[in-house]
Design a protein around this nucleic acid. Structure first.
Lengths: 347, 347
DNA sequence: GAAAGTATAACAAACGTTTGCATTAAAATT
DNA sequence: AATTTTAATGCAAACGTTTGTTATACTTTC
């Protein structure tokens, strides 16, 4: 049995074996037009035979292309983000890029660290969702200064002009609220997200705008702000609403977790959904199809958002020739998914 | 205003600026003991001032260390996997590694492609969960031949000796089943996963073993195999069980999706849970805390599994000196989480 | 049959870092 | 004061690839 070679076979090894120059091998493998078909075949066969594996690090080093994207998310194990990442990876893979992920854990400090790491040029572009804590964007401006394309998704910095992929939260909330109104609700409540975050402000505004447009009063006591839109917070808000003299007849929740808790608290109190109180959620999480009654909600296009972000980013990477670095803001259409937690539209 | 330099500043630039050699700069930045504290300070200050960012590609190229792990999962947006990835990333980040993810989409072809890509040495080690389709392990053997450490989690190849991180599916199923028995169930059903996959076979075996150990009969007609343990499949199985002459009084489901569907079908038929039929799931997905009644289930330690896999892998990477590449199989303890879908233990 | 053109392949430099070894200068030892 | 030891830095090669330019050998063209 032949002794295993210690070092992996390189382009130079192939060159020696075939009495060709390294450059020819490189070009042959890259299918360069200047190389004859005959040698290309020879080279490829030899490469196969000797078990040649290209050293992509050496290649990246020389060519300055890593074919690698960095992704920073608050946490990977949140439904929304895992679906976005899935979309990013899918698109990236198809276009020959790969994806390195980091979790900021919603910490500003950690986000800064990660950005610094990514700047060491492992990565040709970055997709990120801001950490909850992040209020200062200096670390990100350094990035754009160093010409690394950057795309934000979902939570995006207002005062910072870059690429963004979002849904229209205002519009989506408006549609959701209007659906409640059209199905006969008149006294509407809203479980709101943290108002220091733009998207949750927009959802509240959309809610209010829909009320105004339909000449319905805004009851401030029916608007409950939460810190993180967690299930437990939803339970608390639901109970608070139940203690009021007059119940709302429709609730628009800023996500599906709080909507789920709302549904369950109402169920527990034998308040019928949607007849007495209708509920609309946001995000179309898996639970919305499982909870009873199934939740009417907004499909927030997480996977598509990931795809769109990757597409935008890779586009910018590939024609980075154009000096004028302009930026794009992409707004994805959402969809109202009508299930059982709201009434049919009155004729 | 000074004109922006076109190219980023390198170690050589710093060397010129400070009249030192590049090697000294490199060592100073790496905090090498042979360099005086004074120059270290000088170098670091200058680096800061000129906005030096190390070129990690060049570094990797030279040192053969990428500090990068590859992770292959079937799909990112499955609860279990996203939590594993989260654990991997968390541990890797703390130890200075980063994580590049790929989705095999449960396709053998794609898994092979990905393995090939990862072999180009971008990556110092690989963590993976086998694609459902994968029956042939040649592509993976190439990996271990080329000395890239490899750790499997969850779905692992039986006939292949490498590092594995798993839970004890047999034991967990046994415990879950025994819990049903201890709380008074006598006629037990099982919603099984695809029996071509080892872990689902083990769960079925654990189920049967618990029955035997407790002198209970195994009713083959109460064992339903599904292809993918999806929610919809669970609904189908549940309905089939309902059509039988005699209902089971306890069901152990191989995951929480099917358990959730079981609960809902039973609810719909006004069969009381857990009094008439008790239900146990597997994995402790978020829905198990939301569905009513809350699901008794097995916490499968997804996050910890990720951490353990990363720890094992990085350990192997860092002492790759030891010629004897031995491998480890780590089995994580699971936990029975008792909620409302099973009865209290009879005194 | 000489000039021009066209394939094809070779040359050589470069990318930015790391690292073993050599060198120098200063300090310690005799 | 001569020698050895120690500390700090420099030298130079190397990692494997890519790429602009140049060279060679053939064809074609008039």
């Amino acid at each position: 049995m032949k002794k295993k070679r210690e070092t992996r076979v390189t382009i130079t090894d192939l060159a020696e074996e075939l009495n060709l120059s390294a450059s020819t091998i490189s070009r042959a493998l890259a299918n360069h037009p200047g190389i004859s078909e005959a040698t290309k075949r020879m080279v490829n066969e030899k490469a196969e035979k000797l078990g040649f594996t290209p050293n992509s690090i050496a290649s990246s080093f020389r060519s300055k292309k890593t074919k690698s994207l960095g992704v920073i998310v608050p946490r990977i194990d949140i439904d929304f983000h895992s679906r976005v990442i899935s979309g990013i990876e899918e698109f990236a893979y198809k276009t020959g890029y790969h994806v390195t992920i980091f979790q900021s854990q919603d910490s500003y400090k950690r986000e800064k660290e990660i950005v610094k790491i990514l700047q060491t040029k492992m990565v040709e572009g970055i997709i990120m969702c801001l950490a909850m804590e992040t209020k200062n964007y200096d670390h990100l401006k350094k990035l754009t200064n160093s010409k690394i394309p950057l795309v934000f998704y979902d939570r995006t910095p207002d005062a910072f002009e870059t690429n963004k992929v979002m849904i229209n939260d205002f519009e989506s909330a408006y549609v959701a609220t209007e659906h409640l109104i059209q199905t006969g609700c008149k006294r509407l409540a809203h479980i709101a997200g943290n108002q220091s975050t733009g998207i949750f402000r927009s959802r509240l505004e959309g809610f209010k705008a829909a009320l105004k447009a339909n000449d319905l009063p805004i009851h401030e006591e029916l608007i409950k702000e939460t810190a993180n839109l967690r299930y437990e917070e939803g339970v608390k808000c639901a109970n608070e609403l139940l203690e009021l003299d007059e119940l709302p007849d429709g609730v628009f929740c800023a996500n599906d977790y709080t909507a789920a808790s709302m549904v369950q608290v109402l169920n527990k109190h034998k308040i019928s959904i949607p007849d007495q109180v209708a509920v609309v959620g946001f995000s179309d999480y898996p639970i919305s199809k499982i909870i009873e009654p199934n939740l009417t909600t907004i499909n927030d296009r997480a996977f598509q958002m990931g795809e769109a972000a990757a597409k935008l980013l890779i586009g910018q990477i590939e024609d980075s020739d154009s000096d004028i670095i302009d930026y794009q803001i992409i707004t994805l259409k959402t969809e109202l998914v009508i299930r059982e937690s709201t009434k049919g539209i009155a004729k």
